[in-house]
Amino acid sequence: MISKKSSHRKSDEDAVATHHTMEIAVALMFAAVAVVVMVDSNRVGNGWASDGPEAGYFPFYVGVIMFISSGVILLTNILSKTPNTSTFVERGQFTLVLKVLIPTIVFVGLIWVLGIYLAAAIFIAFFMAWLGKYPIKTILPIAILIPLALFMMFEIWFLVPLPKGPIETMLGY
């Protein structure tokens, strides 16, 4: 997401990225998406046929407008004589955000392997232990009861299957 890391003093107030950099990065991303949209709309036909617009007509112009408006944002930021060099995110804040984001990414990965119930139990327990520093006797009931409640509600009551892993398969679900 953010690649520019300042290499000097590692203080919490250091900027991980400035607003200026992020504005440019995001505008570039939009422009890239716009190009993809335009190219694919061109493939399905972006004309106005005798009976109205073709499948790619609207998406194509959506892409065009997006390209132009993101281009304007990009240019104003690049050409600006007074770029907004204020901090987009400070190192300390960034670390905090990553502390939530990385476990969440791992959690989503775990759903793939273990199914959602087990992954949820691990995720809740880890989060509470690592960020909340709770004792095990507080963690265990919550980390077990929440996934269990979800299991009862979805698999048994509502009959809505959620992703399950090897453990559930072993138990015959």
Partner: peptide, 26 residues
């Protein structure tokens, strides 16, 4: 920014099957 965000919404809405021609988009 309003325009860009809105267009992203429209572009995302267009992904998948086009109901009028039955073509796949993006």
């Amino acid at each position: 920014k309003v325009l860009t965000a809105m267009m992203l919404g429209f572009a995302l809405a267009a992904v998948g099957l086009d109901t009028v021609t039955g073509q796949l988009r993006m």
